[in-house]
């Protein structure tokens, strides 16, 4: 009757969480900054999943996007430049039940934190890594980032960036044990939401590169992208990201891509003339490091004491 299941009353939550439960301080990013859209999408995913705010931790490094934890109502860790991932992995190591979101930028993740990015993907701990990529250093005012397009003028390269940018997608796909690699833009909220939701539900490190507007320092570059739908290629598949009808309207070029096909994912990612949107690669079977690192966390103090006595006995003369 009325579409309600007979046992619906069993599904009433002790506490029902609204968006407000996931909201912290008022976001102080610039008007028109793409980070607002990501924050909203993440909060909606948490609300729709009814995750307890006290069991969620938002971890970040330093940069504009790394302010995100301050705007969340969950626990948060706003640490050091480039070092969000080791902290996030440490949080997860003995508390695998905690839900971890990482906010990191193109400077934070792809430059100063490169080593951690490579290894965190390899650890494949269950977390969502949102790589906010606006192709510029914003907080420190317009320096070249590893993804700044060649020729784009910055304060450190006033005549234009002089070396070709990183391709974060091919790099991530090339890392052993990568298990979820997706790309989205901040200006299609349904696709952003569905991608973060899929990332959240995947057990493993979900790496989502978010091409994100900086209206102050890299507006020209993003405006060009926004004005040219031929620069994007939407990936379609039943195991990929669910596509709202707004997606094909905004991005008419589409291709069917099986996200278990790593070779094809690599080809698509390597073609920088068309930026793929959606899920490039997905491997739900990749092992998660917390399954190893959390071993023994359930031992009782009595068991620990007994183990210690055994170790000491072996050294006793």
């Amino acid at each position: 009757m009325f579409g309600l299941k007979a046992d619906w009353s069993h599904e009433v939550f002790d506490r029902y969480f609204t968006i407000g439960d996931y909201a912290g301080g008022e976001a102080r990013w610039c008007p028109g900054c793409g980070d607002h859209a990501v924050l909203n999408a993440a909060q909606r995913v948490l609300r729709d999943e009814q995750q307890k705010p006290e069991l969620s931790v938002c971890v970040s490094g330093i940069g504009c996007s790394s302010r995100m934890p301050h705007y969340m109502g969950t626990y948060g860790f706003h640490g050091l430049h480039g070092r969000a991932l080791p902290v996030a992995c440490g949080i997860k190591s003995r508390r695998p039940e905690l839900d971890v979101w990482v906010a990191t930028g193109d400077g934070d993740c792809f430059s100063i934190g490169t080593g951690h990015w490579i290894h965190a993907i390899r650890y494949n701990m269950n977390m969502v890594v949102m790589a906010f990529d606006n192709a510029i250093y914003g907080l420190t005012k317009a320096q070249t980032s590893p993804t700044t397009p060649t020729g784009f003028k910055t304060n450190t390269h006033p005549t234009g960036a002089i070396i070709a940018p990183h391709n974060p997608l091919t790099i991530t796909l090339g890392i052993t044990n990568a298990s979820f690699v997706a790309q989205v833009v901040d200006w299609n909220p349904p696709l952003l939401y569905e991608t973060l939701k899929a990332a959240y539900r995947h057990r493993g490190t979900s790496f989502v590169r978010i091409i994100q507007r900086c209206p102050v320092y890299s507006d020209k570059f993003i405006k060009e992208l926004q004005g040219d739908p031929s620069r994007f290629l939407v990936l379609e598949h039943e195991r990929g990201i669910a596509l709202d009808e707004s997606v094909p309207r905004q991005f008419p070029q589409r291709v069917r891509h099986d996200p278990s096909d790593l070779g094809r994912a690599f080809q698509i990612a390597a073609d920088t003339s068309r930026l793929p949107l959606g899920l490039l690669y997905y491997n739900p079977a990749a092992p998660c490091y917390e399954d190893l690192s959390s071993q023994g966390a359930d031992l009782t103090p009595r068991q620990r004491l007994a183990g210690l006595e055994t170790v000491l006995d072996r050294l006793t003369i």
Binding site: R83, A88, C89, G90, R95, T310
Partner: peptide, 25 residues
């Protein structure tokens, strides 16, 4: 035997970062 784990991190910074993350949580 006492339920502990040694994490060999990718570098010294990650090693302390990981420990700080675990301590925080």
């Amino acid at each position: 035997q006492v339920g502990g784990f040694v994490h060999q991190a990718e570098d010294e910074i990650a090693a302390i970062g990981f420990a700080i993350g675990a301590s925080y949580a």
